[in-house]
Design a protein around this nucleic acid. Structure first.
Lengths: 252, 252
DNA sequence: CGAGTCATTGATCTGTCTCAATATTAGTGG
DNA sequence: CCACTAATATTGAGACAGATCAATGACTCG
């Protein structure tokens, strides 16, 4: 159960079978939906997901400017979200994995304000936002859950502002690795090993650093015996030292 | 109506008079509440605000760790929100003015995750979150509005990540000034003059720069004839050049 | 197997930070 | 009203973390 995060394991080819699309028997339920419903209510909650969608590696789930209609719950795979400035500079705003929700950026203007790109073959549950709002009005627990998800994203971005505004390269990368491994661990993967799904350049964009700096900092951590790195493979040897490096709450 | 932003003008001493606390006749209504209600619905909506509260300059409206109970709509005055790392480094995460909502960070953990500090004497409307959620279930328009406010904050922070990750000092300060003056203009103040409510250090913390860099960049803008600066007073002489400096959407 | 993508490492450059001194303003009390 | 103090702002000189430029190496995938 604490495998390394080679999510190939869960790559069951899903049919469009109605039964399979139900939240009520989804093994990610506790990650993307609130708890505490009885069986009958769970069935109503299944209405929230209209259908599923496969997204191949490199494909966009949505693009800046697209009309906003739905939120997406990641079933399998790994995404990045990013924004671009007019002159082409790109900023990765987040990396998302199974059980996490993307698309919240689209609510305010009814159009998406960032790109969501699959970093590996992925599958998402499409949740039309009208369904979300409708069911939220019926189920206060769901309503609260939706609010919490949005609030969590706000708090996460607050933490990112702290990273980008105040922390040095080593601190940023340490915090990044700890956050990643913690989220993977919550999904049953190892808490000391991981396979990065993104390039050095994407990590750098996320952390406000250049890819060379990411590479150098990985090498330094490796020399110091804190981690073992081999391309996309990372093994954390001394988690305590990593935590010391980033005096930041490993927020959410 | 396009006065400089010396908000002394609106400093009417408010009584606890029930009538005065009503949203239905608040001149900031269009800023913090959705439009399109009839008179009867507006009266119901008044229930959303329990009471008001005065916050003196320098006082905290809430502090990291405080139990979360309410959102706050700013009636008058100016706030900053900030987070701190364990070793004491502070990151300003936002500046908020009349009509804006603060406290969203508290929803996810039921405790606030940042500090909100008044930068000048202020008054806020206290909106118990249970009221917000209750009325949201009754009024879909309000529900959507709450979602939009949270989404707007997420998008704003995405833009901040772009600033902090990719932009140089001049670009950051230009974007900052344009954003500030645009929001002030939306409130009836001048679109070329403003009084800064925060110190160079607070601007620097917000923009991920040191106070000396802020001061130097102000001086440079001044030498280049883009702005006129005298301590807290700023007059924008060449808005186009400022806009050119920040190839960023002047997001929201 | 080969082409393209991605990662590593070195040398040098630069934007911002740091340290420091001074100037200006706001606030306080006599 | 002024003197005094603390807070804030400006400006300079030098230092440094990370960027940039460049070359090589490793992996991936058709």
């Amino acid at each position: 159960m604490t495998d390394i995060n080679t999510s190939k394991t869960t790559a069951t080819t899903i049919t469009s079978d109605k039964f399979k699309v139900a939240c009520s028997n989804c093994n990610l339920r506790e990650l993307c939906l609130p708890m505490g419903f009885n069986a009958e209510e769970m069935l109503r909650l299944d209405e929230i997901v209209a259908t599923r969608k496969q997204v191949k590696q490199g494909q966009h789930l949505f693009t800046n400017g697209d009309p906003f209609t739905s939120l997406y719950a990641i079933r399998t795979g790994f995404f990045k979200t990013c924004v671009a400035s007019e002159d082409g500079r790109e900023q990765v705003t987040g990396f998302q994995m199974a059980g996490e929700i993307i698309g919240l950026d689209g609510i305010v203007t009814d159009h998406h304000n960032c790109d969501a790109v699959a970093l590996e073959d992925a599958e998402v549950c499409i949740m039309p936002f009208s369904n979300v709002e409708h069911l939220s009005r019926e189920f206060p627990v769901l309503q609260r859950h939706v609010h919490k998800i949005m609030s969590r994203e706000i708090v996460r971005e607050n933490g990112m502002m702290m990273m980008l505004g105040n922390m040095r390269a080593e601190e940023r990368l340490a915090a990044f690795l700890l956050n990643l491994v913690q989220r993977l661990h919550a999904r049953g993967f190892s808490q000391s090993e991981l396979i990065l799904r993104m390039t050095r350049e994407e990590i750098g964009s996320y952390l406000g650093l250049k890819l060379e700096t990411i590479s150098r900092t990985f090498s330094k951590f490796s020399e110091d015996g804190i981690i073992e790195v081999k391309q996309r493979y990372v093994r954390i040897l001394d988690a305590d030292q990593l935590k010391q490096l980033c005096n930041l709450q490993t927020s959410i």
